[in-house]
Design a protein around this nucleic acid. Structure first.
Length: 268
DNA sequence: GTGTCATGCGTAT
DNA sequence: TACGCCTGACACG
């Protein structure tokens, strides 16, 4: 269940094992049989991600485009390889490594141009931290009269944030999730962008989302925080805020839950 | 074993 | 706004 940091991490770690190598491809589950047949024995040049999308670029010019959706999962396996799960949409393997992909929303072959179009539809990706990213985000928020909590899940506004980072980033900048997007002060959007860059990059490195400042809860490091200690707001409905003790609240925005602290994130 | 829920998103109504 | 898609983890019996 991935936000953008998962895809960038996958691109980096999988690339280490597969870049420059020919891979065997198969689709045990059968829903990507023809694609797998086409990729079989092709050389993989590189893997890159933008937002929640990942692109595998093959020497032949084919681009494998994967989006994990809510359920998709990557697993990296080493020999002796277990029997392929019948749910594996795609297995990519060398003698040394195997990538097991199950449950993706999207697993398709694109041309280079088509892959560019997919990436082009997305807003700036904090992990890629393009120059002018903050300004771009301000621009894309400036005409939206929807709540900021809805706007920052829109991948055309900013690419890679999901429900966990949404709740946590709004907590960190002290912004109420129902603040109108276009009414958000540009300075706060700027903070939001800068924190997105540091938080998602930290998530990419560690493989987990930890927004709590370890010092604030008396821990030596972020790595020492246990499950249930790593987040300020997400899924903490009714629990005391780690900063002020007020009770965390939750509500629904477009069918997805958002959590916030009414004291640390006052309505404006 | 069964049921529910989830870090997502596209399309139909 | 609702539904469909796709899988797996966990709570419950």
């Amino acid at each position: 269940m991935p936000e953008g940091h998962v895809l960038h991490r996958a691109a980096r770690l999988q690339g280490k094992r597969f870049n420059g190598r020919a891979v065997a491809a198969e689709s045990p589950q059968g829903r990507f049989e023809s694609g797998a047949a086409r990729l079989d024995d092709q050389k993989l040049d590189g893997i890159d991600a933008k937002g929640k999308h990942i692109f595998y670029r093959f020497a032949s010019g084919d681009v494998l485009h994967v989006h994990l959706g809510l359920f998709g999962k990557f697993r990296m396996q080493t020999p002796p390889f277990p029997d392929p799960s019948p749910n594996a949409r795609l297995l990519l393997s060398t003698d040394d490594d195997r990538l097991h992909l199950a449950g993706p929303t999207t697993c398709e072959l694109l041309t280079d141009d088509e892959a560019d179009e997919v990436a082009h539809r997305l807003g700036p990706d904090p992990i890629l931290a393009p120059a002018g990213g903050a300004e771009e985000m301000v621009k894309r928020l400036s005409r939206r009269s929807i709540p900021i909590g809805a706007a920052i899940l829109d991948q055309k506004v900013v690419a890679g944030l999901g429900n966990v980072y949404r709740a946590e980033l709004l907590f960190l900048i002290g912004l109420h999730p129902f603040t109108e997007a276009k009414a958000t002060p540009p300075a706060l959007v700027d903070d939001l962008w800068r924190l997105s860059v540091t938080q998602l990059r930290a998530g990419e490195r560690s493989g987990r989302i930890v927004t709590v400042d370890p010092a604030e809860v008396g821990a030596a490091s972020a790595a020492k925080l246990k499950r249930g200690e790593r987040l300020y707001a997400y899924k903490r409905d009714g629990l005391p805020c780690r900063r002020c003790g007020d009770l965390i609240r939750s509500a629904d925005i477009d069918g997805r839950s958002i959590w916030w602290c009414p004291t640390c994130q006052p309505e404006r």
